[in-house]
Design a protein around this nucleic acid. Structure first.
Length: 270
DNA sequence: AACAGTCACAACCGCCGTCAA
DNA sequence: GTTGACGGCGGTTGTGACTGT
C-alpha cells in the first residue's frame, strides 16, 4: 500500500553540496527538466535525497535567481508584504522575482528585523514598540473603522518596476474607511477584518469582477471583495471570514499573485 | 597572531496537505 | 476508505566568514 520510499536514507549524503554534485544536478535538470524529485537523485547519479535536490535547485542553482544584495526597494516591499502576510515567505518570494523564500527568510532574520527594531518598530507586529498590545489596538480599531486593502495604478518608481517584473498588480494601498487621519504606522497589524478588494488590472477581460468592484466605488467593497483567507486561496479554511466566498472569489490577483491557483510561483519564478 | 563574539546563509528538520496505491 | 510517500513550507541549526579586542 502507498508508495515506495523516496530514497535510501542510509546511502544519502548530507551537508554542503560539492561542485560535482551541483554540476550533476544542473546537467540532469537541463536535460530532463524539473520532473519527479523522487527519482531524480538516482537518475542523475546523486547520493542525495530528492528533497535535498529540490532545495538545492530551488534555493541555489536555478538560473533565474538574482543573488546579490537586496535593494532598498526590495527591502521596503518585503516589509510591506510581511506586515500583511506574516511569515509566509513563499508568498512574499512570489512577489520578488529571482528571490527565494529561503533567501528572503534569511534576509529578514538577519537584516530587516534589526532594521525595524532600530526604527522602533516591532518586526512581528509592525507597530511601534512602545504601543498598546496589538490585540487591544486592533480591537479598538475594528470598532471605529474597517481597514481596506486595495490596489491602485502604480505611481512610484518601485511600484512601476515591480509591475514590470511581475506583469500584474498595481500598488498596494491601505486605507481606513472613516475620515480619520491616515494611519501613521508604516505597516498595520493584520486582523481578520481586513477586506481585500480586487486589484486594478489591465487585463480587464480576465477579471470582469474587478471592474464591478471599481464601479461600485470605494465604500462598497463588500459585494465583491474577499477576506484575506479567500484571497490567498484558502477560502475553505477556518480563517475565511467572508460569507459568500466560494468559487466567485477564485482567480483574484492578490499582490499580483493569481490566487486560487496554487502554483503561483510558476507565474514568476520559473 | 590568537581568540571570542557576531553575522550571514546554506542546508536540514519536522510538519502538513495532497494524492497515488 | 486507508495508508503512506511526495511536494512544499516555515522554523531551526551548523558552519564558515568577518570583526573587535
Amino acid at each position: 500500500m502507498g508508495r515506495s520510499p523516496c530514497c535510501e536514507k542510509a546511502h544519502t549524503n548530507k551537508g554542503a553540496w560539492t561542485k560535482e554534485e551541483d554540476d550533476r544536478l544542473i546537467a540532469y535538470i537541463r536535460a530532463h527538466g524539473e520532473g519527479c524529485w523522487r527519482s531524480l537523485p538516482k537518475a542523475a547519479g546523486l547520493l542525495r535525497c530528492g528533497k535535498s535536490c529540490r532545495l538545492r535547485w530551488i534555493n541555489y542553482l536555478r538560473p533565474d535567481l538574482k543573488r546579490g544584495n537586496f535593494t532598498e526597494e526590495e527591502d521596503e516591499l518585503i516589509i510591506k508584504l510581511h506586515s500583511l502576510l506574516g511569515n509566509k515567505w513563499s508568498l512574499i518570494a512570489g512577489r520578488l522575482p529571482g528571490r527565494t523564500d529561503n533567501e528572503i527568510k534569511n534576509y529578514w532574520n538577519t537584516h530587516i528585523r534589526r532594521k525595524l527594531l532600530s526604527r522602533g518598530i516591532d518586526p512581528t507586529t509592525h507597530r511601534p514598540i512602545n504601543e498598546p498590545t496589538a490585540a487591544a489596538a486592533s480591537a479598538s480599531a475594528s470598532q471605529e473603522s474597517i481597514k481596506t486593502i486595495s490596489f491602485s495604478a502604480a505611481n512610484s518608481k518601485e511600484e512601476e518596476e515591480d509591475k514590470n517584473t511581475t506583469g500584474g498588480g498595481g500598488s498596494l494601498m491601505i486605507t481606513k474607511e472613516n475620515n480619520s487621519p491616515p494611519a501613521t504606522e508604516r505597516c498595520p497589524d493584520l486582523n481578520l477584518e481586513l477586506q481585500i478588494s480586487p486589484p486594478y488590472s489591465q487585463q480587464q477581460d480576465h477579471h470582469h469582477h474587478h471592474q464591478e468592484a471599481l464601479k461600485t466605488g470605494g465604500r462598497d467593497h463588500t459585494s465583491s471583495s474577499s477576506c484575506l483567507a479567500c484571497s490567498l486561496g484558502i477560502q475553505n479554511s477556518k480563517d475565511c471570514s467572508c460569507s459568500g466566498g466560494g468559487s466567485s472569489n477564485s482567480g483574484y490577483d492578490f499582490l499580483g499573485l493569481k490566487t486560487g491557483v496554487l502554483d503561483y510561483r510558476s507565474l514568476e519564478m520559473k
